[in-house]
Design a binder for these strands. Structure first.
Lengths: 238, 238
DNA sequence: GTGCACAGAACTGTATACAATTCTCTCGGG
DNA sequence: CCCGAGAGAATTGTATACAGTTCTGTGCAC
């Protein structure tokens, strides 16, 4: 781990994006703990840029919900958003709608593209099933495969606005999912079947069924996650 | 109309919000035409602030989709996002999901709050019906009542995340709705009944029905709007 | 008349200085 | 021992200067 960040790309206008992705990765992976304060000047000096691009990145992160203004303090003081059971429930239900809509669009894809998509989804879910059966579950692999499954149909079927929404919202669910997957890898069997149901619904070109299947998958995930959170407690609340 | 803006509030951190709301209002009401260039220094001088708060406002507007980087030009040059049929369709389907989810939550409201909400919605819809029957339709009133109807259940039933999403997405639909309402005020009769269906579904505490009712309302609105756009053409595309 | 090159203007990206607010820590009084 | 007041530090908000890139218009060659 080197403490000095690498030099920022020289492309015009890339600095805020670099800062954004750096901070988001730290938050999503938990290295910036929920509740942590984020100080503009610290980030700026660590990433070797001025406060201006940092401000841009922070504004975006705040808009997307990764950071919030400290609730206890009065002044605008950005802090990493806490992980709470209630927030997880709401977030998952929103993702359910977004991806459900994408799945609905997927049923309207031209036959060629739809078949290609269905093939990909089937392959991914087969690997997902194998991974879920492993004696020693590989959390990262499981998460990766589940994420890819959902991302695939969103990328292919959703329009630009829906994709943008998905890109903004989904990584926040990742904060919870990483928690979830490492504590509940054993309970993934239903997810395999739920994915299969999604594939069937898209194949039969039934928009309502496809949307429902995706929503069911996420609502069940929300329930399972809720139990885990209830057990292990929330983060960043004190 | 005075050309010099009033002095900005002295509250700390309020300038970007003032700029944001000023620009957003201009865009939503069409006074800043789709395709128009937005120049930081111009806005700054018109609103008597420096470029810094203007940048903040522009970043947020860009993130929410009101302005985009000019497609023809190479450099990052903010322009007012065009109004296209395709975008309207996607936007409305997203709003349908967001408000549909809110309506679903509304069915889970405690009985007291739910009854209060139902009363409000009934009142609003009655006024909406009367307004829609008027010989000379008042476009602004119609829009206002429809907007209030939907906003009410979102405000009461949705969680913070869903509300934030709604606040970010819905005003963009307003750009299209204002166009729609002024060209199609006569076709609002079905909307009255669709609203009534929403009320019935919430009253019967049926989550799926409530969600479906809202989605139907928006999908029909999308179809009606699509026809209008096809007739009058798109804006800001050339 | 058309196309290309070059100079100047226009605009955004970045850095930094300064202002204003508020948090925090210490010290004194009760 | 606890609480409040005040000074200093810390942090964000705003303005502005400067740099770099791209657009635009003019003039020249063909």
């Amino acid at each position: 781990m080197k403490s000095t960040a690498p030099a920022v790309t020289s492309v015009r206008g890339a600095r805020p994006m670099v800062v954004y992705h750096a901070l988001r990765a730290l938050i999503v992976r938990g290295q910036l703990a929920p509740g942590s304060r984020i100080v503009e000047t610290d980030v700026a000096s660590k990433l070797r840029v001025s406060r201006t691009p940092v401000r841009g990145a922070l504004q975006r992160l705040a808009h997307e919900g990764y950071i919030i203004d400290s609730p206890s303090l009065q002044q605008s003081r950005p802090t990493v958003a806490p992980l709470t059971r209630e927030d997880a429930m709401e977030l998952f239900s929103i993702v359910a709608e977004i991806e459900g809509l994408a799945a609905r669009c997927a049923t309207a894809l031209p036959a060629g593209k739809r078949d290609a998509l269905l093939g990909e989804l089937t392959t991914i879910n087969a690997r997902f099933e194998r991974a879920s059966r492993a004696k020693v579950p590989k959390h990262d692999l499981l998460y990766e495969l589940d994420e890819r499954f959902h991302r695939r149909y969103v990328e292919l079927a959703a329009g630009p606005r829906l994709r943008a929404l998905h890109d903004a919202v989904k990584p926040q669910a990742e904060r919870y999912e990483r928690l979830y997957v490492s504590l509940l890898s054993r309970g993934l069997a239903p997810s395999v079947q739920e994915h299969a149901a999604i594939i069937r619904a898209i194949r039969s070109a039934d928009p309502d069924a496809a949307q429902r299947a995706v929503q069911t998958n996420w609502r069940n995930a929300a329930v399972r996650l809720g139990q885990v959170i209830t057990n292990v407690g929330e983060r960043g609340q004190w």
